[in-house]
Design a protein around this nucleic acid. Structure first.
Lengths: 340, 340
DNA sequence: CTGAAAGCGCTTACAG
DNA sequence: CTGAAAGCGCTTACAG
């Protein structure tokens, strides 16, 4: 049904080796035979079977992206960036949610790709560990791990968070709380550490109750903020570990009859476009999510062709996008990353 | 380096055929030799090479999902649903943004997958057409096309939109406008048609200026709403073709000093969780996006094993999620699809 | 420059 | 039940 290299060879009266040569362009061929082959290729609408090529060349020209759930904007942008970059290099992208992935399944998956990008938390570490042990090319996306032998691409979570908290301090707020990411989130931990450090560096007290654990959902942001508002001495500013938490927090403030930023100022993390369209527009630490995906692919491809070079860790800068929820009288619909 | 079937055969003192049989479980093997092979498999950490299997079996156990940009919540949920369903069937998912895809590239892509899901608009039609012509298994995701020979999975855009507009009518609004999707969006067209029909069925006038074109972004929703508010007789209710438009519209209403829903009621489409966290919470037509992705995979897999059965078109129901922007005094954080 | 042949790592009729 | 062999569709040293 589908034409093979044999069909083309027969039609062009040459051997399959010659067909392969002209199609791949990897060797000299007489102009005359070249033309004959090309003609046959066109007539038969021949395209080399990538699976057979994969077997012969020991390369699939496919990369895998493993991430914890795709049904959110962060993973969505990662996928978008990764696929875009992969396509530029004529590679394909396989996606997989961590879910029930383990070392064994990872191994099987690795048979169909040339390398793997692992993002997310918790299990991601073990996966990366497994990959490294099995000599699978892998890059970690999202945060650094000290003694794991793998390349990594991350955003500067610590600095971004630190700047956000400092911004609140400059506004004059002194009762600054933090709604964090989930236990399992390493980015969340970095952001929480930065929050703690910023307060300490400025000699601002940090009551234990001001650090409440969230989980990157509107829901938790709402609940956490509600609980903060019930404290004897509620905070006058809250730094949230991501924009979803922040948006839930804003809603809670409103529902309890308070105002943002007059009663409580709020800053989020991620710098999503959506944040510009809540009331009041959300000030947030922008991180270049798509770019993270792109650079991860770039790094992985580089690693594949340079197996023996030393580890590469890329840290992408964040940027505080000032809108209104922090108390600034800024324009309302600023988007992040436009300067880049 | 990586163990092959030959390594296992040698170690277990059997032929590769036998190894293949016990590993695949597709044929009877003596319990004794079976045990020997399994032992060798374990010792060598052997996993069959999927590329080689793909060549021998003429099946890649991989599906492709082609969609117009992944950096948004709709495609994200589609991917999530599709990957989940694929995994259930031990299939993998390759993703690709339409971008510069054409018939030729589609053909090359098709060599690495068993079937393709095509979503989105504009170019998607030509792609699907090309797929059908080249005998590639393909299912259309998102909307129906009358005379194209392909399976399809869609949400009931028309009915969902119709009910939304009727809901506004029941509230007593009579100056009902619509901010539509982009020219190229077939879903958008269906929703706009439903809007028109609902007004006509209820004998409510529909001034031409009340239908303004949007493009599924906050930005356009903001602009479109601002222009509607400048009309001599501004609308008292607006049905938006998606939630992003609706959220931008809400912001515009607020920035111009009006209130939602008191001055203008608003209903969106998609039923995103985020909509529950804007002020006021957004009433919206929920559509089961992840489910669309799952059913698309299910349909494609079914088609692959039943190449000759007649076309299958699945229409998934929508559901009006009542929050507050329509004027109802409902609970604020209702999420869609929880009843399903 | 071109072809015959081996090899990539599997699966599966066909014999025995 | 098990093995030898052909086949899946390519690529690429090796000769000529």
């Amino acid at each position: 049904m589908r034409a093979t290299i044999y069909d083309v060879a027969r039609r062009a009266q040459v051997s399959i080796a010659t067909v392969s040569r002209v199609v791949s362009g990897r060797a000299r061929v007489t102009e005359e035979t070249r033309a004959r082959v090309l003609e046959a290729v066109k007539e038969l609408n021949y395209h080399p079977n990538p699976v057979a090529q994969g077997l012969a060349l020991q390369s699939t020209r496919t990369l895998a992206l493993i991430i914890e759930g795709f049904d959110n904007i962060y993973p969505a942008k990662i996928v978008a960036g990764a696929e875009t970059e992969a396509r530029v290099h004529d590679y394909h992208l396989l996606v997989q949610q961590v879910a029930d992935l383990d070392g064994d399944k990872l191994r099987r998956l690795s048979g169909r790709v040339d390398g793997i990008i692992i993002s997310g938390a918790a299990t991601a570490d073990e996966l990366l560990q497994a990959a490294v042990e099995q000599d699978i090319h892998a890059v970690r996306l999202g945060y650094l791990i000290p003694d794991l032998h793998a390349d990594a691409v991350v955003a500067d979570n610590y600095k971004g968070a630190y700047e956000a908290v400092e911004h609140l301090i400059e506004h004059g707020y002194r009762r600054i709380a933090h709604i964090s990411g989930p236990e399992s989130s390493p980015h969340g931990k970095e952001r929480a550490n930065a929050y703690l450090a910023a307060l300490q560096d400025h000699a601002i007290p940090q009551p234990e109750e001001y650090l409440v654990r969230g989980d990157y959902t509107h829901e938790r942001g709402f609940q956490a903020m509600a609980s903060l508002l019930e404290l004897a001495e509620p905070p006058d500013a809250v730094f949230c570990a991501d924009d979803l938490l922040a948006m839930g927090a804003i809603l809670a403030v409103h529902e309890l009859g308070y105002e943002v930023p007059d009663d409580v100022a709020i800053i989020g993390f991620d710098g999503l476009e959506t944040g510009a369209y809540v009331t009041p527009p959300l000030t947030s630490v922008y991180q270049p999510i798509e770019q993270l995906g792109r650079v991860a692919v770039e790094t992985l491809l580089w690693r594949i062709s340079n197996p023996d070079k030393e580890l590469r860790e890329t840290v992408l800068p964040t940027e505080l996008v000032i809108r209104r929820s922090c108390g600034c009288p800024a324009a309302s619909r600023v988007l992040g990353g436009t300067a880049a």
